[in-house]
């Protein structure tokens, strides 16, 4: 934030020029472009109908058209959007609460910080299995409810897995993403939060006003960026809805996988076209997250 840095910045910015830099980065760029760009290009070509082995050689937008107008695709798209949006919003809201609570505690109690990092290392798959174990009609919670006399048989237990509202999927994502968002927020709060809050207090802001006018704007770029990343992930992730979702409608990634691995090779381009739609949504979320981060840096907020 301090302006004196600007002078130093200008003077030390005597590194390689833009062209020089591009040359130095060329080998890395080639690898990235070949791997990702090449893969994407092949994908796009296949989606456009170029699959010589199956006798499909003419390029056309037919598959994209067919996918985008398929009512099942619309259903899947809606479900995916719903799962990603709801889990992201829930995780974001709970993370704000968690980060504020932890920010108070973590100063005194470093262990809290550490414990909170543990879920980051657990794969989604493991959590999905754990959710089945806990929440399915034959799961631990249902049995405990029966044992406690809350319900008479396990079948009365509400359907939380492979259910209509994708509750199992959402719970898995929320549980898994809260630590990620929370730790991003904590980093910001511990850097800038405390002093600005003190300023707010002496400028007569009460607790709610401090949250609304200082804390929220301070964490907003980090919250936005983290949430978009979580949204992108949950929109594109396959394993959790594959395990915990219903057979109809499927989320887009599951739908894409089913089509791509169909024995009918004609379904393949549609699978890939779906994959590219997913990639586009994910890319948009990531680009927006980047823009938010850049804007925050410009204001001197450390992310």
């Amino acid at each position: 934030m301090a302006r004196p840095d600007a002078g130093i910045d200008a003077r030390t910015r005597r590194g390689p020029g833009p062209t020089h830099l591009a040359l130095m980065l060329l080998p890395a760029l080639v690898v990235v472009v070949m791997l990702f760009g090449g893969g994407l290009l092949l994908g796009v070509l296949q989606a456009l109908g170029h699959l010589p082995g199956a006798g499909l050689e003419r390029l056309s937008g037919m598959h994209f058209g067919r996918v985008l107008t398929d009512p099942d695709f619309i259903q899947s798209f809606g479900l995916t959007l719903y799962v990603a949006a709801v889990s992201t919003l829930l995780a974001a809201g709970l993370s704000v609460v968690a980060a504020l609570a932890l920010n108070r505690m973590a100063a005194r109690w470093r262990l809290v910080h550490f414990v909170f990092q543990i879920p980051l290392t657990v794969p989604h798959l493991v959590i999905a299995v754990a959710v089945i174990f806990m929440l399915s009609p034959a799961g631990l919670l249902a049995r405990l409810a029966v044992a406690a006399g809350l319900i008479e048989t396990a079948s009365e237990f509400p359907l939380l897995v492979n259910d209509r509202w994708a509750i199992g999927i959402i719970l898995t994502y929320v549980w898994k993403e809260i630590p990620f968002i929370t730790l991003m927020l904590l980093a910001v709060l511990q850097n800038a939060g405390g002093e600005l809050i003190d300023v707010g207090r002496t400028l007569k802001a009460d607790a709610w006003q401090r949250f609304r006018h200082i804390t929220l704007p301070t964490i907003f770029p980090a919250l936005g960026a983290a949430s978009l990343i979580v949204f992108a992930y949950t929109f594109g992730a396959f394993e959790v809805p594959f395990l915990l979702g219903r057979t109809y409608p499927m989320t887009l990634p599951v739908w894409a996988y089913k089509h791509y691995s169909d024995i009918d090779l004609m379904a393949r381009p549609e699978g890939i076209a779906t994959g590219i739609v997913i990639a586009a949504v994910v890319a948009m979320a990531v680009v927006t997250a980047q823009a938010l981060t850049r804007r925050a840096r410009k204001r001197g907020i450390v992310l």
């Binding site: 934030m1 301090a2 800038a192 002093e195 600005l196 003190d198 300023v199 207090r201 002496t202 400028l203 007569k204 802001a205 009460d206 200082i214 704007p217 301070t218 907003f220 204001r299 001197g300 907020i301």
Partner: peptide, 18 residues
């Protein structure tokens, strides 16, 4: 602090960046 009629100017400007 918010109920005291005293205001503090800190060593750093600590302006709200947003």
């Amino acid at each position: 602090p918010e109920k005291r009629d005293a205001v503090m100017v800190f060593q750093k400007p600590l302006l709200f960046p947003f």
